[in-house]
Amino acid sequence: MLKSHLNFTLLEECRKCGACYEVCPSCIALPGYDPRAVIKDILEGSYEKWLESKHIWQCLECHHCLEMCYQHYGFEDAMTAMRTIATKKGLYPPQIKRGWAMFEKTGRLGEPSKPGRKKYGLPEPAKSGGDEIKKLLAILKNDTSGEKADKG
């Protein structure tokens, strides 16, 4: 499953390097957060135990690791892959679930505040493209469930 998300050849180099550990804000500030351990387990095929860990959600996606890396790869890619797999298994923080539900319904993560607009004398907000997003998400859902792949 992981091979479709990650490039193991690059990841093997990651295991030997680890330079981004020094610039990663979560590695510096959060005890117990160490993507090097996760990468080692991914390469050794024993990553399952991380799927329920809070640590895989602690990557801030600040892209420091990506910028440091001579492969233009990094901790972030490993963490994103782990989160995508965890999410597929329903193992995600409640806020992610709520946010995704809102996005599916409206195409946004929050609607413009009406009282706020009135208070600050702001014009009517522009129309959202939410309906088009709903349509596109429905097509993607059908595609991935493998029912059909027609392109209209």
Binding site: E61, R108, L109
Partner: peptide, 11 residues
């Protein structure tokens, strides 16, 4: 008109 959430990457 027509914009939606960017969308937020981490989500």
């Amino acid at each position: 008109n027509g914009f939606t959430c960017c969308p937020e990457k981490s989500l």
